[in-house]
Design a protein around this nucleic acid. Structure first.
Ligand code: SF4
Ligand code: SF4
Lengths: 154, 154
DNA sequence: ATAAAGAGGACCAATCTAGTCTCGATTGCT
DNA sequence: AGCAATCGAGACTAGATTGGTCCTCTTTAT
């Protein structure tokens, strides 16, 4: 598990699609192109628009397009737009409080892990997701592996 | 979001606690020491025992203890024991299938991201969680940040 | 004016989660 | 042998979350 919600997943798929084709796309087109039901596409895009990940144009010949360049939008932006701040544990989230916070001694470490996950996802931009090869992503995975090996080597 | 479940969190807390004190601990003790309700502690430990993260000893003066050395158990072991394989998206999971898999063009990239997350979490051992300072964890976070910066620099 | 689009939000069914409880099987101790 | 401590398996519930649909209203190009 440790899964992003399905709607968030759709958000990435749609945003990535928008990254590859320019101009404003109405929901109907995006639904056809991504094979995701139109009402769902609409729901996702409304959330993305509120978070200013995409911009909308109403009326005839309107639709959605990215609010910034694909290389300036990270997957974190999309995830946070759809399911709130990244927080692997409850104590890391500002909104909620865990009743054990006061005397939990793994809390500080979770904060660090959360930062690491955030940084990793923030390093991945929509432009990276748009290339099927994912050349840049390979770098990232390798870095994570190195961190792992470095740790073991200590 | 992108949160581990609360039971999993407890699993880490309990396992980390076991990492710092040796001998077999009965549920009642662990409950008192971690301030987690006993039935819940029991539920978590049963799952961990099934996954062979901890071993159990029944009868009087029995209890639970780690099945391996703390430095040989990563947080991934605990997470997977409690909520199944790490799978940020549906398509990465072997069990379930996403209906878009055939023509989804971000799928391959999610697989890479998933690998990165897995590697990062696998690099963190219970022994790391047990030190409040988390000296080794700093390394990891730094690595992730570097990967990010490297990516931007490209 | 009209038709094409998005905005906002209500709504529902299905699933998942957290947590409790009961009963039965082991096992050390005396 | 008997007893009390302790784990094992799993049923069960209430509440939260998720995925998905639908309706009404506003905006805007032509
Ligand atoms: S304070 Fe401890 S128990 Fe509470 S959410 Fe954080 S890590 Fe988990
Ligand atoms: S195949 Fe595409 S839409 Fe389906 S789970 Fe994977 S990334 Fe998401």
């Amino acid at each position: 598990m440790l899964r992003i919600s399905k709607l968030t997943d759709y958000g990435i798929v749609i945003a990535t699609h928008l990254a590859s084709c320019g101009g404003p796309h109405p929901v109907s087109d995006l639904s056809a192109e991504t094979e995701i039901p139109a009402p769902t596409v609409a729901k996702v895009l409304k959330a993305l628009a509120r978070a200013e990940v995409v911009t909308s144009q109403r009326g005839a010949r309107g639709g959605y397009q990215l609010a910034h360049r694909p290389e300036d939008i990270s997957v974190v932006r999309v995830i946070e737009a759809l399911e709130g701040p990244i927080a692997v544990t409850e104590c890391v989230d500002d909104e909620s409080v865990c009743s054990h916070e006061a005397r939990c001694n793994v809390r500080a470490n979770w904060q660090r892990i959360n930062d690491a996950v955030y940084a990793a996802l923030d390093g991945i931009k929509l432009s990276d997701m748009a290339e099927p090869g994912g050349a840049r992503l390979v770098q990232l995975v390798r870095s994570a592996g190195e961190a792992n090996r470095a740790r073991i080597g200590v």
